[in-house]
């Protein structure tokens, strides 16, 4: 007997969860805005120390990856499951590249003495300390979401290969995709606020 699944209910549940995520990151952006108004100069000089090429490339990577996940949904609706696996593999690979870039970027920052509670930051101007603390908290929490998103996309991929996600039962893929798009959404705000501030 086939179990009937409430795909629509699952989707509402996923969106409700995404709303809490919006509030979580929204809170951090409020913190950013409040301190920006107090320490504008430190934030501007802090932003100049971040690598624009890394930020820009990672932005393009996430946007493309989001596109691939949206395309994966289209392909499974069109019953071309093989194409779905290709799109998903592409999206997952780009997510991994994003993390590698982040690793290189963080590694370089830590090397030059910019990391949470570093003596250089702790004894410097408070605005600069706060800017980089927020940078690590926001990009760190975002990176954690990338890892969770990658797990969800990978599970979806395995389920598609095993025939558990099909063109008439793709709720899991859709919800994993929604999560991935949210991660992209957050980065859309992180990029200009941290890397492009002047």
């Amino acid at each position: 007997m086939k179990v009937k699944k409430d795909i629509y209910g699952g989707k509402i549940g996923m969106w409700l969860f995404l709303y809490t995520e919006i509030m979580l990151f929204g809170g951090l952006f409020v913190l950013y805005a409040a301190y920006l108004s107090k320490y504008a100069q430190d934030f501007i000089s802090g932003g100049k120390e971040l690598s624009l090429p890394f930020g820009l490339v990672n932005t393009l990577i996430l946007l493309t990856s989001s596109f691939l996940v949206a395309a994966a949904l289209t392909s499974i609706q069109r019953k071309t499951t093989r194409t779905t696996t290709v799109f998903l593999l592409g999206a997952i690979s780009l997510g991994v590249v994003f993390l590698i870039n982040k690793y290189i970027e963080w590694g370089h920052k830590i090397e030059i003495g910019i990391y949470p509670n570093a003596p250089d930051l702790a004894n410097g101007p408070p605005g600069r300390n706060i800017f980089f603390s927020l940078y690590y908290v926001v990009t760190g929490l975002h990176g954690l979401h990338i890892i969770i998103g990658l797990v969800l996309l990978s599970v979806s991929l395995v389920y598609i290969v095993r025939g558990k996600i099909t063109y008439e039962n793709y709720g899991l893929l859709e919800n994993a995709g929604l999560y991935w798009h949210l991660v992209d959404l957050i980065w859309i705000f992180v990029f200009p606020l941290f890397y492009l501030i002047i």
């Binding site: 989001s66 596109f67 996940v69 949206a70 929604l178 798009h181 501030i197």
Partner: peptide, 19 residues
Amino acid sequence: VALLIAAAKASLVLLFFMH
């Protein structure tokens, strides 16, 4: 300006990628 452009990008992702 940065927030306005980011909001436009977010709207595109929400409306179309997220359906």
